[in-house]
Amino acid sequence: MSNGKKKALVVWGGWLGHQPEEVAGLYRGILEAEGFEVEVSDTLDAFADKEKLLSLDLIAPNWTMGQIDGGLVQNVLAAVQAGVGIAGTHGGMCDSFRTNVDWQFMTGGQWVAHPGNDGVEYVVNVKHSSSPLLDGIDDFVVKSEQYYMHVDPAVEVLATTRFPNPNVPGPHTTNKSVDMPVVWTKRWGAGRVFYCSLGHQANIIAMPQVTEIMRRGFLWAAEGKARADAAAAQGAGAYTGMSDSIV
């Protein structure tokens, strides 16, 4: 890139109840504060130019309950496999396209329920794991939708929440308690995938803890592109020794 900046693409749309435009604006602010050149688009056609996607460092999708042409998904998958990072929140990344299993396979999970709907108070428990990405962030309370998800067992779980919530009745409460992933990372080829299930609306993304989680996630995901490019230039093929350091 001529200006030396990392490039990010934010794509928003779908169900307007998630305030996708407002959340996209918060994404843009976080990224620009970190020196990214940011393009924001409100159309899935932003995924049509595969070569352009391959030139990015980061894709930040924020599209809920949509329908998408399979070819557009394959372009995104190819870009991430080549090293472009992808990071997002809530339904904007893991309830984007309910009928596209390829998207779900890449992102690492799919929303299936939020017992009690919006306004449920719950604790986000930060895990001590092999990743330092959330180091220094303490457990915190959120009042929002509590996402129950189907999750790829290959993900690295960085934060969880407990189900069932004692304040929320439902048929799921007769099962044993489970720690549901809230924040995770995974790999897709040479690319880095980061997800946080928080963010029903913009006020949740604007919480200091969530803003910091996403700042770190964006940086971590975007870092993978340079590492993958460097490994390819050295003839090393797909880079597999990527650390979880925050740039």
Rank of each mutant, 00 (worst) to 15 (best):
P153S: 05
G29V: 03
D49C: 12
A154N: 14
G66P: 06
L56M: 04
E223S: 12
F140P: 02
Q209H: 04
S243D: 13
V38G: 01
G91E: 13
M207I: 00
V23K: 13
G35W: 08
Q81K: 12
F47V: 13
D42G: 12
I59E: 01
P153C: 02
M65S: 08
M1V: 11
P166I: 11
T173G: 01
N3M: 11
V151I: 14
A233V: 09
D102A: 12
I30L: 11
A222T: 01
R227E: 13
E145S: 07
A226K: 10
V141L: 02
D135T: 13
D138F: 00
Q74S: 13
N165C: 05
K143D: 00
E39P: 03
T185L: 11
D244Q: 09
G235Y: 14
A159H: 00
Q19I: 01
T89G: 03
G29Y: 03
G224D: 01
K186Q: 13
G241A: 13
S144T: 08
R192G: 10
D69E: 15
Q146Y: 00
E156D: 12
L72A: 03
R215D: 00
G85E: 04
G241S: 08
M149Y: 13
A60H: 02
A238E: 05
R162E: 08
A159S: 04
L44W: 10
V76F: 12
R227A: 09
G119W: 10
D42K: 14
V142C: 01
T89C: 04
K176D: 13
Q81D: 12
A221N: 07
Q74F: 11
V123N: 04
L158R: 03
D95F: 06
A206N: 06
G35Q: 08
A78N: 11
D102I: 05
H128Q: 15
Q234H: 12
K5G: 05
